[in-house]
């Protein structure tokens, strides 16, 4: 029965292949969000295949240019994941991230990049299911929004 189910799921996934597929780039902190993604994997929680992860030691490492660069190069959405406030492995790297991302959100808004294309999420190492939900939500949102445009598409 398990195999049958797998086959069904696979067909459903395949159906999506024909459609346009968004690219979702995620900068995940090593200690919480990346580990949370690993937990989702180890628990075999399927999620949207749109996501590509770049591992960073801490969400505080994320330079806003890394986000703008992704949009400039045609990525459809960017997720930044860090530890919950108070739980940062480096004590307060996520606060630095939070501050910077406040500016990023404002500037993306000014530039006309839809709100759903960028998210900052605190996901702990034990929150595999939250990681799964965030990826799925975001990928669904990107499908709804279609390819990112910076005015030229």
């Amino acid at each position: 029965m398990a195999q049958q189910l797998t086959a069904e799921t696979a067909t459903e996934e395949r159906a999506e292949v024909a459609e346009w597929r968004p690219t979702l780039l995620a900068y995940l902190c090593n200690w919480c969000s990346y580990a949370g993604a690993n937990l989702a994997g180890a628990s075999r929680m399927p999620y949207d295949a749109a996501i590509r992860v770049i591992r960073v030691p801490c969400s505080g490492r994320v330079d806003p240019l890394m986000i703008y660069k992704a949009f400039e190069r045609g990525v459809d959405g960017v997720l930044v994941g860090g530890c919950h406030l108070g739980d940062c492995h480096y004590s307060e790297g996520n606060y630095a991230c939070q501050g910077r991302m406040t500016l990023v959100k404002a500037l993306l808004k000014a530039a006309g990049i839809e709100e759903g294309r960028f998210r900052l999420e605190w996901i702990s190492a034990s929150e595999g299911s939250i990681f799964q939900a965030v990826v799925n939500e975001m990928a669904a949102k990107l499908r709804e929004l279609g390819p990112a445009r910076m005015g030229d598409g």
């Binding site: 806003p64 703008y68 660069k69 400039e72 190069r73 500016l103 500037l107 530039a111 910076m150």
Partner: peptide, 26 residues
């Protein structure tokens, strides 16, 4: 290379001006 060098390409221009606005925030 954060932004394409030289003018004439929208994407490079976008990256430059958005990057600069970010750097000037505050």
């Amino acid at each position: 290379q954060w932004a394409l060098h030289g003018g004439g390409q929208f994407r490079g221009n976008w990256m430059w001006n958005i990057g600069r606005a970010q750097h000037l925030a505050g």
